[in-house]
Nucleic acid binder design. Sequence first.
DNA 1: AATGAATGAGAATTCATTCAT
DNA 2: TATGAATGAATTCTCATTCAT
Lengths: 216, 216, 216, 216
Amino acid sequence: MCPQIIFMDFNDKQLKIIETAEELFAEMGFSGTSVRDIADKAGVNVAMISYYFGSKEKLLEALFSFRVSASTQILESILKDTQKTPLEKVNMVIDYYVDRFNSNQCFHKIMVREQVASHRIGTSDIIHHYKKRNQDLVKQLVHEGQKTGDFNKHVDVPLLMTTLIGTVSHLVTTQHYYRVINNLEDMPEEQFQKHIKKKLSNHLKFVFKATLTHEA
Amino acid sequence: MCPQIIFMDFNDKQLKIIETAEELFAEMGFSGTSVRDIADKAGVNVAMISYYFGSKEKLLEALFSFRVSASTQILESILKDTQKTPLEKVNMVIDYYVDRFNSNQCFHKIMVREQVASHRIGTSDIIHHYKKRNQDLVKQLVHEGQKTGDFNKHVDVPLLMTTLIGTVSHLVTTQHYYRVINNLEDMPEEQFQKHIKKKLSNHLKFVFKATLTHEA
Amino acid sequence: MCPQIIFMDFNDKQLKIIETAEELFAEMGFSGTSVRDIADKAGVNVAMISYYFGSKEKLLEALFSFRVSASTQILESILKDTQKTPLEKVNMVIDYYVDRFNSNQCFHKIMVREQVASHRIGTSDIIHHYKKRNQDLVKQLVHEGQKTGDFNKHVDVPLLMTTLIGTVSHLVTTQHYYRVINNLEDMPEEQFQKHIKKKLSNHLKFVFKATLTHEA
Amino acid sequence: MCPQIIFMDFNDKQLKIIETAEELFAEMGFSGTSVRDIADKAGVNVAMISYYFGSKEKLLEALFSFRVSASTQILESILKDTQKTPLEKVNMVIDYYVDRFNSNQCFHKIMVREQVASHRIGTSDIIHHYKKRNQDLVKQLVHEGQKTGDFNKHVDVPLLMTTLIGTVSHLVTTQHYYRVINNLEDMPEEQFQKHIKKKLSNHLKFVFKATLTHEA
DNA sequence: AATGAATGAGAATTCATTCAT
DNA sequence: TATGAATGAATTCTCATTCAT
């Protein structure tokens, strides 16, 4: 079904390289980061990267596999919960996305960049598979809410997903502008993260409740 | 206030370079594009780029100035219109953004990428200025709606802007995935653009109406 | 007919690079020579090689085109001469080969090496074309001699060509062994070249006369 | 006299490495083959090569020792045969060379390449020793034939050796061209080998008989 | 005895920019 | 004003070899 997401057992040095690459790719972009930069920051020999991953491109793919393979069941488990109302589940999905983006900011910055270009096949396959799966799950959830009469009938799930992911990823990638524009420059980083996470969660929950229940 | 947005008078060759650079930067990223690629595709001498713009970085800045300077008064004029209700104005703002992103896809792909990184000062200043101004204008509009009682009181304008821009830019940058996931691969490009533009506009108008008027 | 042998107009620097590369490839082999070696010896910047030829491989092809394209009509003109007997023409062909190998020793050393491997397409096409054409010309000449009754009937031209080229190229490539084995180490280089050229010419003429006229 | 030709007792793994190296060196050249290529193809650890042979260069020397040491007495035994006429012996020498080259094609391709360069001392000493010895033996044989009056007086043995070895080695190294030029591309490999071996043997025997017995 | 891990050196090539004209 | 030529620096990757185990 998704042969390219192979769970790999990375050793400490490989993990160190992956994590360092993640930080640098996030900040400088893939092409803007040299393998030497990564090696230097990770404290390993330059040749190690080719040795372990084959190439810079393959390192990016390894990073994708590593991050994507980490979370596959959470959304499923949210949906299966029979105790929750569809709206409660929607709120959980929102928190899942807010959490994921918030705790993997570097990776998602890379994702945002990579999604723009369609020419990197190795990664775009992984992204595509991941997006498709999640959209299908949310579609199920919306149908569930429509059946119970909680949600209105004409919800455009693909665009709702676009709003969800777009809002979260845009905030994550432009948070430094958000700080400046909203005069939050002096707030300590940790506090700022908590602050926007909370606000973003509330905002999206409100937007989604309004959208899903508002009569056309 | 914004010294770097200088309206420049570009000659034909300069414009050709800027437009070619825009296409390539959009697809390959800034670092992923070489000046030689640009020069070749634009049909000019490599030295022209340094000659005209000073450097590759400066070319990017010129591109930003060029695109941003082009539209400064539209939002203002929407707001000033005394004939329209606040909700009508919101819808106009939405269409303005949808239009802008749709007709300047390449540029906005670059913007999305560039926003991620905070290290490129030349462009981030322009982006910051642009975002700040637009957010302030929308804030005015929301206040106007709140005064008239059309909008509810606790609207988070910065996050609403995030949702607006995030949704539009996410769709623009991931439209190839959107096509595939929603089985629209065979639709001709032009028709597809019309299709998503219309859908996106309706979707956002509905979301905004619901959000701005929904009682908490 | 032979599209890959394009006559190129090389400038002085390009010629310098080609000639230096020829010397080094002859002595160290293609893979055994680095572009840096060539650049250093030729007194040019390393980047020049990529700049002018695109790649190391393409430089080799340029060298082949350069050397091969130089001599296309000589054999034809020998054959056309109506004043000479077939045997005289054979002797002229022999001298042509001896001369060619002798005055382009470096290039022919490269040819000998390159012929071994069939994996370098760019050059093997040129070699193949060149060998085919020359063999066809010699075949004509032998037929001519057979018609006049000068040569015997069962001459195997492909193998005769193998003997001709094999003998000359083997001597060229192993001349340092020849010197040592035959106690000619003290002979000055120039004199040695003259010496073996003369001896080789006589030897081959004798072998060919014997072979072509000897009754089975 | 020839200290480097030491008969070495290679174990299975060492032999596997040597044989694999032989194939790769023949096709790709010494510099064009990496120890990793050899190790991978031979199915052994990369470190094995340094471990067993010391270095890549030493592996080449081991290969030479291995192949050269294998055949030292055959030529001697041919000469000693008192039953055969000088011409019969010459024919046997020819078959010996044709056989040797034919059954050790890979090795002889390497030899051809290595002979070109004089800079690899380890191997050139072995080659030199080998050539010198064989030439001396053939010189004896020719003298024998001259004494009996079978061969004419002015035979140039060094150049006759050059013709013998040059012809055989040229055919071995350029057989793929030979196939194409003579429209034998569809002949199965095994059959082709038999075919050229037979033709080459007959050709050389005829050339040698003619040359050795032809009156000047 | 054998090997997976590791590495410094060097490989070819591309880069943005400069310079002479 | 415009450009072909040129280049030093940096790019990714491969190399043969060594080392700890």
